[in-house]
Design a protein around this nucleic acid. Sequence first.
DNA 1: AGTTTTTTCTCGACAGTCGAGAAAATAGAT
DNA 2: ATCTATTTTCTCGACTGTCGAGAAAAAACT
Lengths: 409, 409
Amino acid sequence: MLIKSGSEQMRQQNILLVLSGLRRHGPQSHTDLGTRTGLSSATVSAITVELEKAGILERSEQQPGAGRGRPRVLFSQARNCGYLITAQISSDAVQYSLVDYAGRLIDRFDEARRHDAQSTSRFAPQFREALARLAERSRLARDTVMAISISSKGTVDADGHRLLWSPLLGEQEIDFAALLAPDWRAVVTLSNETLLVAQALGIAAKPSAEDHALAVVSLGHSIGLGIARLRRHDEVEASAPNFGHMLHAPGGGLCRCGGHGCIEATAGFYGILRTAFQVPADTIPAKFVPLPEMDKIAQTARGGNRMAGYAFRQAGLALGNGLSRLMSFHGRLPIVFTGPGTRYFDLLAPGIDEGLSASHEVRLKGRPEITVHPDEQRLVFEGHLDRALTGMDQAIAEARLSPSEKRSA
Amino acid sequence: MLIKSGSEQMRQQNILLVLSGLRRHGPQSHTDLGTRTGLSSATVSAITVELEKAGILERSEQQPGAGRGRPRVLFSQARNCGYLITAQISSDAVQYSLVDYAGRLIDRFDEARRHDAQSTSRFAPQFREALARLAERSRLARDTVMAISISSKGTVDADGHRLLWSPLLGEQEIDFAALLAPDWRAVVTLSNETLLVAQALGIAAKPSAEDHALAVVSLGHSIGLGIARLRRHDEVEASAPNFGHMLHAPGGGLCRCGGHGCIEATAGFYGILRTAFQVPADTIPAKFVPLPEMDKIAQTARGGNRMAGYAFRQAGLALGNGLSRLMSFHGRLPIVFTGPGTRYFDLLAPGIDEGLSASHEVRLKGRPEITVHPDEQRLVFEGHLDRALTGMDQAIAEARLSPSEKRSA
DNA sequence: AGTTTTTTCTCGACAGTCGAGAAAATAGAT
DNA sequence: ATCTATTTTCTCGACTGTCGAGAAAAAACT
């Protein structure tokens, strides 16, 4: 059964329309909103008045000298209406950011992670403490933080509450929602890192709108994949399949997940290292490979070293074959590479091409468009912003009746 | 941007709600509809009166003796409100069915297809002629046919208008929408056969609702895959990835698609035949393998013939590995096997199991639930009904204002 | 015939959107 | 300095649609 539609839903929908228009296209006037949303001027008025009263919107100053006529007044999000905290967990550090409702960065710091034995057990309390510190530094009442958005590599449960498996903490499951529930009133969401990248690229790629989807591959110690499907009406639906541990070749090298022949076991940094140094493929994978070491291997490969070159080519092949399979499922789609591994893209490209050509889709319609976008961290942050702030907009639209509204108006 | 919401959309949505409630749960009374949809009695009244006037709904007789009180009158679809034609194209025949708006089968016939050289060029005119005959046999005005729903194996374009590639007609592209446009006013949709099976299983599996998705594999001369995602509110979103031509093993046997190492090249009937008879793997695949011949191979395999047994096991392995990759993308999901190949399921099962166990998902959460459902043709028909009739409901809801409505009421 | 029970139908109130036009605010013209 | 043209914002009455409550209908039971 679908959902019932009353005048209630109608208003919610139109409020959301206004908020998301403002979100995607910045401060706008009454008339802009009207033409953009298709709503009549009268309706826009009713909505903006209501949101202004509720403290969600505020009127910016009009820009003067913009031609004849009454000057437009721009509406924009009220900054102090609520705050968002993002936490990007990566292998060597966690980056914490505090952002206001309008999407402006207020404060940010990194906290390095150590790779000793106790680091995993101490992770949760350290995380909690860091969040507390972030709020304190800006003298922010905790109740004003409406959302906490966390990202990590690995597998996340459907609710976005628990980290089920991660390359950093292994099978140590963390329930972030439960961890933060005592301290915070905010909505806590955990997302796969590459999913957020896909989200960010999805909304950015929107204007072209030629293709209906795109894929992004994160190259690093482990391999991540994100898919963004571009739905009608500016919506982006992102997902993050477990690509790194998809079967590449049965009986292949030992993977960190305990399986054999995963893509990551050949194309992740430790896989490349293993092949390059001719370590037996069932050797327990390295926990962490420093970038300089990878750089060194890449240098020897570029200098003509056979085995190093072969390692990168095999890695590319694993990626290409995997992407070929991806395209069997989702059709041919443009591919973006990101992450630290992109600095070896020249070495990976031939293998990727070879692997891709095994696909029916590629043979029929040609090679997909491939681009490289090295700055992964920034994309992750953008993904955080888009998802979390849109979520706040939604929550505002849905919670419209509770505050006062019944008595006063 | 989302879509604007006015009182118009509100009514459309609620009309759709009533129609789909009626569709999924059969004839119902005023009150039933009210509780099911959540709409107030007054609103249900307004809607049913409108639809009755428009000739979409009609009141069935009340069933007498059902206790005290005023007897309920059941609403149901007006049969003569519109008709649907379905055409199921399979390798050896095309089945044409005529169905009324309530989903009742009115007429049906099969037309055999021959496998000679001219058959493909003659296909289109024969198809057109058969549709004409179907309408004529029931003395039906063509304008009353609202939808023509066609299914085939192979690749379909996004609009559902053109058959891009099929195992039966190869690269000979057919634009069914264009083919039928001169003769029919109806909406023409082409769907992948296995997608329809997934749709049918999806709506049937709904009550359990434990898993959020399911996959169905069609085993035959070629291999089909359908996925049904169970969305909230009774909605099923079905898709049909190009599974049969997904890469199984690089450099594997020659496939009908022209590639090497596709799943189908090992697991399709011709692939099994090739392996069983030790024909070189780059031999041009047989166009068609009669079932009795497959039965014979299966018999020898069951009787202990090494090579025949190996052929089925390899086929199962290709399927299992493919499904393992599917689960890397979609998570662990229950699997249904259908199609003529299910009669060899005992021989395929060991290979499938072995292939599945290579998946990270399976190792973590255990083997997925596997069921067999041999009667593919009936499932395809059910899928046709659900998709096409739901589409008609939607069209009715959307086209509400045009007929009269403005003048009369 | 009267009462009870259940269902269907109808009426007034309410929420929300829309079109049109009034009011506001500015730049340029006189 | 005042007036006019122009553009934007705001307001009012009409319309559409939903909802709750109660009236009307239609059967079974007493």
